[in-house]
Simulated assay, not measured.
Amino acid sequence: MSAKPVAVVLLNWNGWADTIECLETLLRSDYPDFRVIVCDNASSDGSLDKIAAWADGQLEAGGAEGFQRLRASPLGKPVAYQRLNATQALQASAHDVPLTLIDTGGNLGFAGGNNVGLRHAMASGRYAYYWLLNNDTVIEPDALRRLVARMEAEPQAGIGGSTLRHYYASQVVQVAGGSSYNPWRCRAVPLAANQPAAEPLDAAAIEQRMAYVAGASMMVSDAFLRDIGLMAEDYFLYFEEFDWACRAAGRYRLVYAPDSLVYHKEGGSIGTGARGKLSATALYYLQHNRLKFTRRFFPARLPLLYFSMLLELGRAALRRDFFEIKWSLVALLGLPPRGLSNRKRQA
């Protein structure tokens, strides 16, 4: 049986160095039939020009020494590519090339930027699966193949996830597949977070607990996408994948491919991750969208959410974390988020 074609969508925003490192491993994938679409959300750092220069063989990729093995096999340059604007991307491509670079025309957020790539891929009518992969990742050569295999094994599979490991601590699990959901605190709980990678993962138990698949590596089927629709764009950042899963509940299954390994830096564009605390942008949208999501899908739990958020504000006050208090209150009170910044606070 021939491999089913896959469109891989990467979203870039002022992160060309991460995107190039990701492409270096992605294009070495052992899966026989896939194309890559990079969607750029109006970067101010010349990202598309830098990525095009890399594809032309004029710019080298960087990255941690520990992942040099993922780039050991030859990758011929130049890599054939095409560049499209947002209007051109609405049409099926006239050229079948390994790499497509799309200028989305603005900072459309996570869902909006990825949806540009999804629309472009769907217009061709040739893809069975679409893999949304964060640009701040590197992958094992068989990660795509193993993820497709898990989707193929489950007839009702709508969304599939990988094992995400920490890029800066590659023997530690960041999240296995996705997250469960605590209805009492209205909070998502990443599955197997910070578990040593050597410990076994119970894939069946993880699938039973998953409320949604982590957006850093999220594969959807063509049937799912045409039935359920694209990601909701009104979140801008956070909760889009949970919204997607809730819209599909009872019609499609969430699946997990434990041997599909993806190493994730986490939050390079928005100011999150192990090396710093949440930025204003991350804090605001995390809290704002907790409220929006709960109102949309679990309105009866809003009192629990307000109570939980007040407890969190109390803990922040005890820590004298006035930065967190400010942006949590802005979100909680529905105030205009003026002065948002991606600048990280030091841990």
Rank of each mutant, 00 (worst) to 15 (best):
S217H: 11
L118E: 02
G66W: 11
P98W: 04
E140Q: 12
L304F: 09
G267H: 13
K292G: 04
E233I: 03
R185C: 05
Q195N: 04
R150T: 08
P299E: 08
G106W: 14
V173G: 01
D40G: 06
F293Y: 13
F307R: 14
A89K: 07
G106N: 14
S341N: 02
A89L: 00
N182V: 04
G113Q: 08
Q68V: 11
A86L: 10
Q346C: 02
E24N: 12
A192V: 08
A121T: 11
T137E: 05
A55Q: 06
W13P: 00
L254Y: 05
G106C: 10
A86Y: 09
A64Y: 04
A316Q: 02
P258M: 07
R185P: 00
L278V: 02
L164P: 12
S44P: 00
A94S: 14
E140F: 06
V97H: 08
S179C: 13
S47P: 08
V173Y: 06
N194H: 14
L286A: 11
L318F: 13
L133D: 00
K326G: 01
A3N: 12
A149C: 03
A211H: 13
L332F: 14
N114E: 01
A198W: 10
G229S: 03
S179H: 08
L305C: 09
F236R: 06
Q58W: 03
A248F: 04
A53H: 01
F242R: 06
Q174T: 01
K292D: 02
Y127P: 02
Y238K: 08
I139F: 05
F236H: 07
A280S: 13
L311W: 13
I270V: 14
Q68I: 03
R290M: 12
V79T: 07
Y81G: 05
F242Y: 13
A331G: 09
E21A: 13
P190L: 05
R28Q: 09
